[in-house]
Write a protein that binds this DNA or RNA. Structure first.
Length: 510
RNA sequence: UCUGGCAUCGUCUAACGGCAGGACAAGGGACUUUGAAUCCCUGAAUCAUGGUUCGAAUCCAUGUGCCAGAACCA
């Protein structure tokens, strides 16, 4: 049992950016002076849910890549272009989680919604260049017109509207004179392009919805494909890192930057493989479902793979950062074994956490030769490897709790814990020998009758005999009942080992 | 049937034409007042077939497999 509030023996930021293919690209650009003295990345989540450990990888990557040059920066940008999905509570949680991970965007927190006016101006520019048009087809007609993987699309009947007409219609769209679905603004690219993203993609759709930041100021909202490259360009982003599923969007990203023109530096999109973890759901949609259907107690439920959930569960930010560093960055789809994450956490926790003793499923032990009312106080180091951290005091009394799993009626050969006739060490206290077990009429184990060796104070063996088992224990007198809600919930409904309900109490000494 | 991307130990990842290395996991051992931690050891890989080369995981060709893509989501 551990207490993770102990101070850290490690520097909170001793991990440096490891080489990877993105670092290589950045280093090349730095060397050739492609963007001059500018190295700018950004972490751009949509505020429609809590961040999870997959986002942690992206956060670490963007911030550490920016650190490759002394002048590099990483912005936090909330990609809030879809008012119906987004909410301010997520804006808040995202900031808290990034900060908890140990990254600082300083004053550079931006919102795509702050760019709505500029993005709109870019749309007008495209219309004036004859590169965008208002399409009045229905959503179904647009979908059908797009064709499919094997069939080219066909031009919209509205594709050749005049610049003037498009400008008028776009103005009316913005003014709220049209219903949702009545019209969209599309880029005029190529309906026969092999890349479906290039078949006249949508730039704007009409949403008569209130936005969490802009309220009712707008009723048309830019699509991700349009807003994202522009937001990057506005912020001077040089390296726009995103996950593999946007690979097919890159030609469109570049098309917008080039068609609108005049941006310096020119942002470049680079894709990497998203994090997949064994036994772990990292799909925002599914996590959303767990929350919505109340299978969990909110986004920060300790069972959730969200950063907030992991924080509540006792994860350390440096463990997440070290993990991100350890798994590397590549373009191949991967499925990381969760044991790698757990290893990293154990490593950090082992160093951080002061020790205490706990009993999850108590079994009473009575020391027959230990007088009622007597007490022996022992000092046990808070951490076996860091004696300078000090000691805690534990008191031995006649009646104790030990872990139920630490006793077996019929012990196998290599069983070093309690069994009739077996001797074990109570950590930090003494040696005890199990004399007998007491059962009730139904045959349930009630308590253990043991004897202690007064010569073994502190758990030493004056005669040098070997005792292989060392057990956690608590005095029934001053054990503190500290039922952990998570544990309670995990085990109260399903009990694979058939234990009784009361056995799930947890006791921790002070 | 289309377009794009990716293939190295069980899992991640390194080697950038010159000894296939590391970590996790697994197995074995030592030590231990948490069956923890720590330490040592072992097994374990270049998708396939050709080609270029003194030399190929790396370059070329062909094939195979996997992932992504047809929201007015991001």
């Amino acid at each position: 049992m551990t207490d993770s509030t102990a101070e850290t023996p490690r520097s909170p930021r001793d991990d440096s950016a490891a080489p990877n293919f993105i670092a290589d690209i950045i280093d090349d650009d730095l060397r050739t002076g492609k963007n001059g003295q500018v190295l700018q990345t950004r972490f751009p989540p949509e505020p429609n849910g809590f961040l999870h450990v997959g986002h942690a990888k992206a956060i670490c990557l963007n911030f550490t890549m920016a650190e490759r040059a002394g002048f590099g920066l990483c912005n936090l940008r909330l990609d809030d272009t879809n008012p119906v999905a987004e909410d301010d509570v997520f804006v808040q949680s995202i900031q808290a989680d990034v900060r908890w991970l140990g990254f600082d965007w300083k004053e550079r927190i931006y919102f795509a919604s702050d760019y709505f006016e500029r993005i709109y101006e870019c749309a007008v520019t495209l219309v004036k260049k004859g590169l965008a048009y208002v399409d009045s087809q229905s959503p179904e007609e647009i979908r059908e017109g797009r064709g499919n993987y094997y069939q080219v699309g066909k031009n919209s009947p509205f594709r050749e509207r005049s610049v003037e007409e498009n400008l008028t219609l776009l103005t009316r769209m913005r003014a709220g004179e049209m219903k949702e679905g009545e019209a969209v603004l599309r880029a005029k690219i190529d309906m026969a392009h092999q890349n479906m993203n290039m078949r006249d993609p949508l730039l704007y759709r009409i949403r008569h919805a209130s936005h969490h930041r802009t309220g009712d100021a707008w009723c048309i909202y830019p699509m991700y494909d349009f807003a994202h490259p522009l937001s990057d360009a506005f912020e001077g982003v040089t390296h726009s890192l995103c996950t593999l599923e946007f690979e097919n969007h890159r030609p469109l990203y570049d098309w917008f930057i080039e068609s609108i023109g005049g941006f310096q530096p020119v942002p470049r999109q680079i894709e990497f493989a998203r994090l997949n973890l064994t036994y772990t759901i990292l799909s925002k949609r599914k996590l959303q479902q767990l929350v919505a259907e109340k299978h969990v107690n909110g986004w920060d439920d300790p069972r959730m793979p969200t950063i907030a959930g992991m924080r509540r569960r006792g994860y350390l930010p440096e463990s997440l950062r070290a993990f991100a560093e350890r798994i590397g960055v590549a373009k191949r789809d991967s499925l990381i074994d969760v044991s790698l994450l757990e290893y990293q956490l154990r490593e950090d926790l082992n160093a951080h956490a002061n020790r205490t003793m706990a009993i999850l499923r108590p079994l009473k032990v009575v020391l027959e030769n230990f007088d009622e009312g007597r007490e022996e106080v022992f000092e046990v180091p808070l951490h076996p490897e860091y004696p300078e951290r000090g000691v805690r005091r534990v008191t031995l009394t006649r009646e104790l709790w030990v872990e139920r799993d630490d006793y077996m009626q019929e012990a196998p050969k290599k069983w070093f814990r309690l069994a009739p006739g077996k001797e074990v060490r109570l950590r930090g206290a003494c040696l005890i020998t199990c004399q007998s077990a007491v059962h009730d009429e139904a045959g349930n184990l009630i308590e253990l009758r043991c004897t202690w060796d007064p010569e073994s104070l502190g758990g030493s063996t004056p005669d040098g005999r070997k005792v292989k088992g060392t057990l956690h224990w608590l005095s029934t007198r001053d054990a503190v009942k500290a039922t952990v809600r998570l544990y309670d919930r995990l085990f109260s409904e399903e009990d694979p080992e058939g234990h009784e309900g009361r056995s799930f109490l947890e006791f921790v000494n002070p």
